[in-house]
Design a protein around this nucleic acid. Structure first.
Length: 463
RNA sequence: GUCUCCUUCGUCUAGGGGUCUAGGACACCGCCCUUUCACGGCGGCAACACGGGUUCAAAUCCCGUAGGAGACGCCA
């Protein structure tokens, strides 16, 4: 039988980066085994679900090139089916109507808590004969509390839970809508899911869900529960750690390739391999090498990977994604400048946001000079800069190597170090003391613009 | 509280009884390259949670302890 897996996010919030990893592992497993990767939007909580979140789920998956098969299933459209199953179970005597009010149950929970015993629904309504008027009942499953249930989890291995831990869970709410437990099981069954791969926060739910499978007489799929991703301090990943939603990482300037590779290596490994292409990921992926322990999100490693993929990326396609992060409309000339300078720019940036910022040297002349520039603004430096202007003017076109050697010559004749003149030029060109090679920059922006920037620097300091 | 899961350098991990004086990557530190910053190259720091077993031999198997996480909803 061919493998069918699904990714089933709920659009009640932003798409968590940990969920993206779950999607990735599902996708890899499907592609590795030539199976199907399906999507299901779990939007039964209509109050908290938004179309915006749903849209973002599709966008992020596309961005990462995690493609899905078949039409996505919208869970809310299947409520009638869920209801039908729940009512069918009542008819078969495997489930029953429960008229206990939320208040009654609440007080029973309180009581159990006081006594220090775990709360379980006591089954009051299982044999109820007096049907109260005017109360909308819920449907509860009759739990089979005998024996134990064991699963062979793809990640966690053999896990056994005593059935006495379980109680009669609610399948259908009093308003007639299905609970999560019911809808996942019914949908997974109807979609023909063979392997349920999800976060390990669902591990204990699995045993409840198996009860539903059994009551319905359906085949139980194979489960795989992957550990969650935590923040750098081991607590739940939250906003204060930087970013939680996958979309945030895009905005922060990360390449999808970097996110893909980072997420893949977080919790899964293939020997000492660190840089893994999509093709190899598909070829190599398996659950034997998924770790059981939770992992922490390390922004520094992501940045390193991102820097690597930016350097690897061919300039024109890197420029295409870079445009998204540059806020101004570029002229044809500015585009050409950036493209020429990209080789040097890209090895100095860790994110696309940084790269966009560094590209500014080819877009705008500095409007101010960093405090640190003043160190290179003594009369000696100013004099040298004036002579640099002379050199520029003597040249027909600014050729990087020639310009460099002529300025070196100048430094010798003035008995200065090259670094002193170069830093003064850098300040003039960028307003900062950090940039790609000044000779490269000047050769790209040309004689006029170079001269202009240097002159401005001179008049700023020389008065 | 009950149940379930987890525990190798700061972080991600390799390791599945002897080849482990525990390997790689990121981060950090130093050196080299160098017009700055980076890139790159070389080197360094740094871990088997603890306690018992089993065994000739344990990071690796078993049992405890401690710590961490998750579940226990008419949320998903």
């Amino acid at each position: 039988m061919s493998i069918r897996v699904r990714f089933a996010p709920s659009p009640t919030g932003v798409l968590h980066i940990g969920s993206v990893r779950t999607a990735l592992f599902n996708w890899l497993f499907a592609r590795h085994n030539s199976g199907k990767f399906l999507l299901r939007i779990e939007d039964t909580d209509k109050l908290r679900s938004t179309d915006e979140n749903t849209k973002l789920i599709f966008e992020i998956l596309k961005w990462l090139e995690i493609d899905w098969d078949e039409e996505p299933v919208i869970q809310s459209s299947r409520i009638e089916r869920h209801k039908e199953i729940a009512e069918g179970l009542v008819k078969q005597g495997k489930a029953y109507y429960c008229y206990c009010s939320p208040e009654e149950l609440e007080s029973k929970k309180e009581e159990a808590k006081k006594k220090g015993i775990p709360y379980k629904y006591d089954g009051t309504c299982q044999n109820r004969t007096d049907i109260p008027e005017g109360i909308n009942p819920v449907i509860r499953l009759k739990a089979d509390i005998a024996g134990a249930t064991t699963i062979h989890d793809l990640v966690q291995g053999e896990v056994t839970v005593k059935n006495s831990q379980l109680d009669d869970m609610i399948l259908l709410r009093s308003d007639g809508t299905p609970t999560y437990m019911l809808s996942v099981v019914v949908d997974d069954h109807d979609m023909g899911i063979t392997h349920v791969i999800r976060g390990d926060d669902h591990l204990t739910n699995t045993f409840r869900q198996i009860q539903i499978y059994k009551a319905c007489g359906w085949d139980i799929p194979t489960f795989g529960h992957i550990p969650l991703i935590y923040g750098p301090d081991g607590s739940k990943l939250s906003k204060r750690h930087g970013a939680v939603s996958a979309n945030d990482y895009k905005e922060l300037g990360y390449l999808p390739e970097a996110i893909f590779n980072y997420l893949l290596r977080l919790g899964w490994s293939h020997g000492d391999d660190e840089i893994i292409s999509k093709e190899n990921a598909i070829n190599w992926f398996d659950f034997d090498n998924v770790g059981k322990s939770p992992s922490r999100f390390d922004m520094a490693k992501l940045q390193n990977l991102n820097a690597y993929y930016m350097r690897q990326k061919e300039n024109s396609s890197l420029f295409d994604v870079l445009k998204y992060y540059i806020n101004t409309q570029l002229t044809k000339q500015q585009e050409a400048y950036i493209l020429k300078g990209l080789n040097s720019l890209k090895e100095r940036a860790k994110t696309l946001v940084e790269l966009a910022d560094a590209s500014n040297i080819y877009i705008n002349a500095p409007t101010s000079f960093d405090e640190s520039c003043s160190k290179y603004s003594t009369p000696k430096h100013i004099d040298a800069l004036k002579q640099v202007i002379n050199i520029i003017e003597e040249m027909n076109v600014l050729i990087e190597e020639e310009l460099c050697s002529r300025v070196k010559e100048l430094a010798r004749s003035l008995d200065m170090k090259l670094v002193d003149i170069a830093q003064a030029i850098r300040g003039a060109l960028s307003g900062k003391l950090v940039s790609p090679s000044v000779f490269e920059v000047m050769s790209i922006i040309g004689k006029t613009e170079s001269t202009l920037r240097i002159k401005r620097y001179i008049s700023y300091y020389d008065d």
